[in-house]
Design a protein around this nucleic acid. Structure first.
Lengths: 227, 227, 227, 227
DNA sequence: GATGAATGAGATTTCATTCAT
DNA sequence: GATGAATGAAATCTCATTCAT
């Protein structure tokens, strides 16, 4: 996890059972963190096109060489950032859902939306870039571990409330829920139409999700459509 | 003089004594069209990072100079493409909504979703890039005329069906509807989870929209929530 | 003179003895004038590096093609401008020297300096570029007819006052006088050290010229130097 | 860190335990020097218009990137070259004036002129371009530190010989002297009218300067003239 | 003759990546 | 491991010139 792609880590057997945190590991970890933080800032401020490894290194107070010590190339920086973000979001979602096990579906959905809004409010610029300009270039796509975790966790939530739900296909429903939640949260934070109050936006997101999950069922269930 | 604007000139030289005028206009118009078409193809095949003015020019069978005769810089190509896309989508939405005036809200929403899915199915690669990698850098954001047209048109649809709707704030509702529709249509076309049938995806999109628009919505009114 | 390098002028025998000024010739002449005027303005405002034929054409309210109708290439524009300037300066010098035939050498020199200062005061920016950035690139140099005229005229002035002069070699003296006069006039007009009054600058130029022409003679005459 | 400044590092690694420091500095310094030298050669051979960063880099045996590592853009190369030239001229002037303190004004002026002629004789082509084609575009003008040094040094010379001088305003006189000396030296080296012997040219320059400085000057005082 | 759209060689500049120290 | 100077392929953009209308 410290090194992103190709790892060279070889401990020069000094002290046998390192006391606190293995100095080397720790420094590496910290370096990665610093670089990622700088990437986030630069990306947030200048967009993908305006981001380059030299600037990132400078911002991180580190040499370009060091960036390449931990990241094989420029795109891996962004991939790592995305992964980190997804991991954080997963943590937030998991925590909130675990803590609200006793509440209603609406209550839990709302808690989740609120947590995500809060998490994204920190540096909206970055998330805008991260979500909208995520490099499709050559990236294998869709193999983010954290993304899968999120999927599983939300899918589990739906499972726990299956009786209340209109949609029958829970995989599909999870996918729809995640798409809606993600867009609306980002849109609410990033391009918040000035005239809408934050609370109104949050409520709308919850309404949209609940409307889909528990709405009337004229079609949705049967896979066939009626043109 | 014909820079960047794109109007679909259709003067199939019927009447012989044509008012002698458009020859210049037409040439320019056509050049813009050719360049934009090439940009679309290249963008679809190589992504934003892989697209450059030389390739676009080559693809268009035109010299780089000509590209710069009509577009001040690389980004303006993409902006123009985005605008063209929005214009086309507006046309599609407007047509379908006008033609379905007699139908139910669900029927009209479904028609709209179907039209958009069809329009995006043409070259999904391009739309993937266009919607996801759209470069914001420093763009003024949100000043697309066609985007506003779309907003107005959908807002009008909601107006026409106001009695059936749960949301009270129609501006907010229009915004939510557009966000949901856009993401789901794109996601359905671009990263269609293999296991879901197209018809099921379409139905889900309609369900999501209708769920939001006509759902029970116990929160919709009161802006405050019960955390 | 109408066309700078390669002339195509062929009168399509319409009216035999054209009444006033031969319309064609006149139009050409005027075109050349307009283009040269535009070149002067652009050159003055943007310097040599910032000047290009397209801008010149636009400024002249003429098409690029027309520029190339009268000037074989970009540099010829500047050469022509230089020649025009030299011609004007020759005219000014000649007039003033002819009119002051009765006066003292100092009087005539002063009249000449004053005339040149006045002529250059019109658009100093242009002259700065014209004199300082004159394209040496490939220009044959030193074959300006007007420059030779000026040389001859000043040489004649010195001839007329030979008895009063310290320098023996009048060709050399003419060369020195022209160099000094040119630099100081330009410097006075272009980079006038704010603290010096125009009149003081004029006086200094005259003093410098007269000092050289009528100064003491410890060396100047004998070509050998005493290191 | 070593960008553009040029100081003539002469640490011929004598002492072994060198304070370990300059290695980097020295490399940079040397690179700047190499690039500037190449620029000078190219400029001298091909003129401003014919000079481009690729050629400069190639000539310097360095990559274009390296040129841009030390110079922000093409023009800065020329500006730096100009500055270097001015610095060298200042050094030459200062040395000669210091060494001739005991001599007469004429002797010192002559020494100065001779030194400048010698300095410019090295590569006249370069100086031609440097002085005549120096790009002003938008340059702040007149802010060369070395130019100011030269002014001060010559002004001091005049101060030291004040009693012998005709001009009263020594700032103005310094300005005039520098203008005359500069033009004539350049002209003598660059466009030396074939018929004039170098010695005659040198003598004429000295005569011109001395004529101005010690001439009779019936006007010098009264600013108003008698047109 | 006049026009100006089109051309494309070439100039400027950037930036991911390497590698000697 | 860390550094950052050096690299140079490649991208963006300019502009003198041509030529069909």
């Amino acid at each position: 996890m410290t090194r992103i792609e190709n790892s060279h880590s070889r401990h020069p057997m000094k002290s046998p059972p390192q006391p606190r945190k293995t100095p080397r590991q720790a420094r590496s970890q910290q370096m990665v963190e610093v670089i990622l933080e700088a990437t986030a800032r630069v990306l947030g401020e200048r967009g993908y096109a305006g981001t380059n490894t030299n600037v990132v290194a400078e911002r991180a107070g580190v040499s370009v060489g060091s960036v390449y010590q931990y990241f094989p190339n420029k795109d891996s920086l962004i991939t790592a950032l995305h992964e980190r973000h997804a991991t954080q979001m997963y943590a937030a979602i998991d925590e909130v859902l675990a803590a609200s096990r006793a509440r209603s579906l609406r209550g839990r959905v709302q808690a989740m939306v609120r947590a995500l809004l809060a998490a994204h409010a920190v540096c909206p610029e970055l998330h805008r870039v991260l979500e909208k300009e995520f490099p499709f270039f050559d990236a294998p796509r869709e193999e983010s571990a954290a993304d899968h975790d999120i999927f599983r966790r939300v899918r589990q939530l739906l499972d726990e409330h299956r009786p209340e739900l209109t949609p029958r296909n829970l995989d599909l429903a999870t996918w729809v829920v995640l798409q809606i939640m993600e867009t609306l949260v980002h849109a609410a934070v990033i391009e918040p139409p000035a005239q809408f109050a934050p609370a109104a936006l949050e409520a709308s997101i919850v309404d949209a999700l609940m409307g889909y999950l528990c709405g009337p069922s004229p079609s949705g269930r049967q896979v066939e459509s009626h043109a």
